[in-house]
Design a protein around this nucleic acid. Structure first.
Lengths: 234, 234
DNA sequence: ACGAGGCTGTTACAATTCGTAAGATTTGAG
DNA sequence: CTCAAATCTTACGAATTGTAACAGCCTCGT
């Protein structure tokens, strides 16, 4: 159940089918939409890891949609379009798309490109930062020590560090369990979810979170977690 | 503001010139190399932000170079190749390249793609307005907390947030059940109505509404709901 | 080798969320 | 006023998440 979700927005049923089949064969979960309004509705529920969007939509301007998705929500957006002019591609990319694939396309290549973008998101630049401060805390990833505003120090483990780093690298963004699994290289399965629960629980304890009302690590029922906090790497 | 460095590795002088010109016009600094060994030597001194690499090199296997650069060093690598087969592209991307541009290319598009990859690397999140105040209440959609005029805080759930956000985005306007279903991506059917009733009921409780005479969420019998209230997003 | 201690996943159970069902209540037409 | 439809509320249960307890594993120092 925890595979990465790819949303496909295209008005042609055939295209939807081809993309959906190829991506599911490659191990992704997919959602398809024929119209932008449906797609936007789904965004309130699920956060897809990647969005494949056709620009020629019946009910909305695709470019503004891409712009909102990519720049405001930070999603990975790949335009799949029949418009092959260089100018189209350039404006698409400048408005925030991460890639621009021209129809007709080869499904294999689409899958490869989706994977390439996901890989990059997972391993952003050589993370040479080793300490981060947030809301009075200082996390040191060299010494594996967490220091609170009074200077009291608590060590944290490697497993805790993985989760904490994930949160600190993407604050104020919903992180689904599937994304965690992807980024932490967890083996698929039911047990991963429980293990992640436990890791987060232990991390919350060290961060002195009130279990009833956590301030930093928020749970979104049925969706994932959000790390709130003003993070400052140094 | 120091300019970003782009390294270009290609055995054809013309190509090097075209790419270098286009990128420098776009505000980048460039370094060009004809052979892989020179390029590798330069890596020890400078760390380019992006590498444009041709695969058909005289002195080395381009693919292993790409692999080392992208996966081990975490650099942004864009392959620029004359080999247009889908298979070439797929293996290039799978070995770690972030993009694959086919010759002949349009320099404008290359620049746009370079920019797109750089943008993604450094601009992960950008959240829009997250709090709204109305009639003495403050709703915070980051922390999922509702605060009344006395400062008392009540958490609200994700499902409640969806409804509340819908109301706050369209105050003083009739919202029909059909619209809610559309916006919230609910499955059609009788059961959706009941579920929405319950959500609204719970929301009303948290807003301390008098069931007999609600001030904020008004029911329009047979039509839908209206949210009254002076909403102010910030 | 041995045992202490820490780390981590697993299991079992508690707590929370949220939709569904069912009965109560309200609304508005006739 | 009467009644049917629409809506509200409460209670319950399935799914999801939290956490305590346990066990296996690894790393130490002795």
């Amino acid at each position: 159940m925890s595979q990465l979700l790819v949303s496909i927005l295209d008005d042609e049923p055939e295209i939807r089918q081809i993309l959906s089949d190829a991506l599911e064969d490659a191990g992704f979960r997919t959602q398809t939409f024929a119209r932008a309004t449906e797609f936007e509705a789904s965004l309130r529920k699920n956060t897809p890891a990647v969005c494949l969007v056709d620009l020629s939509l019946p009910d909305k301007d695709g470019l503004t949609l891409v712009h909102r998705l990519a720049l405001e929500q930070g999603a990975i957006v790949i335009i799949v379009s029949g418009r092959a002019q260089v100018q189209d591609r350039v404006t698409g990319l400048e408005l925030g798309a991460d890639d621009y694939i021209i129809k007709p396309f080869d499904p294999t290549e689409v899958v490869a490109r989706v994977r390439a973008h996901l890989r990059k998101e997972k391993a952003p630049a050589q993370s040479q930062h080793e300490t981060a401060s947030f809301n009075g805390w200082i996390a040191n990833f060299e010494s594996y020590v967490l220091e609170d505003s009074e200077g009291e120090q608590t060590p944290f483990s490697h497993a805790e560090a993985e989760v904490l780093r994930l949160f600190l690298e993407s604050p104020k963004r919903l992180i689904s369990r599937a994304q965690m699994q992807e980024m932490l290289g967890g083996a698929a399965g039911e047990s991963f979810d429980r293990a992640m629960d436990v890791r987060i629980s232990r991390l919350r304890t060290k961060l002195k979170e009130d279990p009833k009302n956590p301030q930093l690590i928020k749970t979104i029922y049925g969706a994932g977690y959000i790390f709130l906090g003003e993070v400052d790497w140094s």
